[in-house]
Amino acid sequence: MKLLHLTLLLLLALSDWAHADGGVVLLRASDGEITATLFASPSPLRAGPADFSVLLTDAEDQPLLDREVAVRLREPAEPGESLVPACCRIEAPPSDQRLTAQLGVGGNGLLYEARTRLPKSGEWSLEIRWTDGGDGPGGQVAGVFEVGGPSPPLAAYWPWFLLPVGGAGFLALNAAARAHRKPAA
């Protein structure tokens, strides 16, 4: 049973990086006959972990599932609030990030997904490039998007702070119940 509890704890801890849908549509643009739709999560975007998913469709709105997709992010010219990486002195993500988006890694088999950390708030520019992996013609679309300041810890981790609150509530209930228990005859 304790192993089960441990499994639950570990899986709860891992749940922060578990995600399924691609988020909400952030950008939709076409290059030739191919249309790229960019989904982003969380919505609205904030400095911190972010998830970018790309859907490529042809002129008949059929998804293209055999492309090599790259996402390039460039930080704002006038950056705002910076993310202090709680927990780790990891290398700050570069100001010019080139990410490879992979098909289906986020759960949705139609989306090319890339995960990263956005270190600063402000207006970021974005570029999506795709090729067919060979010498065939590729394409690209570009756009800008707004990133807000990092979430305060209480907002970012609120479910974990509820655990001791729930525990205290249970303890209080248990104590009250015991206090009102009738003495044995």
Binding site: L10, C87, R117, G167
Partner: peptide, 24 residues
């Protein structure tokens, strides 16, 4: 990245488990 993102939730979960057991 997934380890880095999981660290704080993992630590907060363990600490919450500890304080609840202590209270009990």
């Amino acid at each position: 990245g997934w380890i880095v993102d999981s660290l704080i939730p993992m630590e907060l979960t363990l600490l919450a488990g500890g304080v609840m057991m202590s209270w009990w």
